[in-house]
Amino acid sequence: MSKILIIAEHDGSQLNPATAKCVSCAEKIGGDIEIAVFAENGAAVAEQAAQIAGVSKVIQIDDAKFAHALACVIAPEAVALAQNGYSHVLGPSSTFGKDLLPQVAALLNVNQVSDIMSVQGSHAFQRPIYAGNAIIDVTAPEGLTVVATVRTASWAAAANGDSAAAIESGSAVAADPGHTRYVGTEGASGDRPDLQTANVVISGGRALGSAENFDIIYRLADKLKAAVGASRAAVDAGYVPNELQVGQTGKIIAPEMYFAFGISGAIQHLTGIKDAGTIIAVNKDADAPIFEVADIGLVGDLFQIIPELEASI
């Protein structure tokens, strides 16, 4: 039977919902599911992880060196832990997981299965390649640890259970290599819902024309309690910060409702939204490729339509 270790993503106090999505993937693999929390003081995060249904144990490893998630610090610890009979090590396909899990895989001398979309067996998975233009069935060898990242847009978060799993405390075993230092983080747009987990996302494209004009997107988003996203063109043009980029090289999201205003629908953008529930597109150009995938389309001027929407919602 499989024994699965999930590396928790968190910000020091809050467990990232991506972790519960990894639990859903692990349940499909089947077996014992345990979560490792590497933190400076991980008590709060460990308690949240222990609430997730299907988790049998949480291992809380506290150390000052985990104050910031540095791959070179966490990877050797995860590897040491993984050697206690785990068949699988999973993490989310977020920038946290993408930074860390390949290090874990390399130190265990295996290739990583990136971006699991679905599970066919304990060692058989589907994942996207070529920007999602092809889906492959890939098999990892039996007898070697499976190290994988979970494509969060493909999985619903596992719900909380009735009773909490046991929390065990462990201790760090590897020395901090000392060659990597955290300096700081800037960004994160305050009170709005997180782009990756929001139920509703309002995105704007190059047609917005300027950073100032993006205000109408923010206003509509506030009205709908939605997160704000953007196309690569809008980010490259400097209208919004990079963390709002939706697409193959930005964030891959699966909200219930996705609004694309003035986004033409380049393949790399569509890759980021194809798991959305309902896609609504507004564009001046009736031939824009976004209309090929939109559930509801409207040809028109976004500067006229957005205020009308705002007034009538």
Binding site: D11, L70, T180, Y182, T185, E186, G187, P241
Partner: peptide, 12 residues
């Protein structure tokens, strides 16, 4: 470029 914004690190 990380999910939370822009993170800066210093490496040897």
């Amino acid at each position: 470029e990380v999910d939370a914004g822009l993170e800066t690190i210093e490496v040897d």
